[in-house]
Nucleic acid binder design. Structure first.
Length: 252
DNA sequence: ATGGCTTCATAGTGAAGA
């Protein structure tokens, strides 16, 4: 089963790129973040034309998540249960026997911001929910934009970024908290090239200079085997790219 | 360089992202 995640930074702008990527890679599951699309305007017909089904939870301007899949999505969950949140950041469903959880973790803006506190509370609620979810669904994959670079090797310039939002110790502790539930970072199961990133700043030729961060992740429960995991840099080279690029894994 | 670029909502700029 091939699963993938991609923060598209507006599905409207990136729709053709998503369709092309589906055609080329034929994933069983593709989780999207930052669709920035209200449900009434979701390009349902276009996704179906690509031979896929899709569930989505969106809003105007910000956030928005979707799960595109070849097989139908069952037991759909919108948001973190018991955690009141206007922001559309979580979508979960069982697809072909695997619990797929698609997340768009808050950015946090800066460590002295209210949004940073929201991010930490949000991550704590996510962890508490997933602990229960893992008991219900031993085969679980958590895919998305975590807005956390887990280690210094996931940062192009760790000195410049030290203590900053996306790399701060409380955020990394929250990431380790997810790992302590038994979830494994699929990317790090395998030997990977140095300076592998999934996001590059639009500014200052960030991609050309490989000034990036690895903040998009696929975490897998112990009951899921993993045969491969990689970052596909190709869409970042297209005209009008998202600032994120897809991460994909082969699981069983 | 508290900048740089892109998107959205809006109709000239501002917020937010990471």
């Amino acid at each position: 089963m091939k699963v993938a995640t991609w923060n598209v930074n507006s599905l409207k702008v990136r729709l053709v790129q998503v369709q092309d990527w589906l055609d080329e890679h034929q994933p069983d599951v593709l989780c999207l973040q930052e669709t920035k699309t209200e449900d009434a305007n979701f390009p349902l017909t276009e996704i179906r034309q690509s031979g896929y089904q899709v569930i989505y939870s969106g809003q105007k301007t910000y956030n928005g998540v979707a799960i595109i899949s070849k097989k139908p999505a069952a037991d759909v969950q919108y948001g973190i249960p018991g955690f009141a949140d206007e922001q559309k950041r979580v979508l979960a469903a069982t697809i072909d026997g695997v619990r797929i959880v698609c997340v768009y973790v808050p950015n946090g803006q800066s460590i002295d911001s209210d949004k940073y506190q929201y991010k930490l509370v949000w991550l704590s609620a996510l962890q508490a929910w997933l602990k229960e979810e893992l008991q219900r669904y031993p085969k679980l994959a958590l895919l998305g934009d975590y807005n956390i670079a887990p280690e210094d090797r996931d940062v192009h310039d760790p000195v410049a970024w030290a203590g900053n939002v996306l790399v701060s110790e409380p955020e990394r502790a929250a990431f380790r908290g997810l790992q302590q539930l038994g979830l494994r970072d699929a990317f790090r199961i395998f030997e990977q090239p140095d300076k592998s990133f999934s996001w590059w700043d639009y500014r200052m030729m960030g991609f050309r200079r490989n000034h990036g961060l690895r903040i998009d992740h696929i975490l897998l429960s112990p009951q899921l085997a993993c045969n491969a995991c990689s970052i596909d840099r190709a869409p970042r080279k297209l005209e009008r790219p998202s600032d994120h690029t897809p991460v994909l894994a082969e699981i069983a």
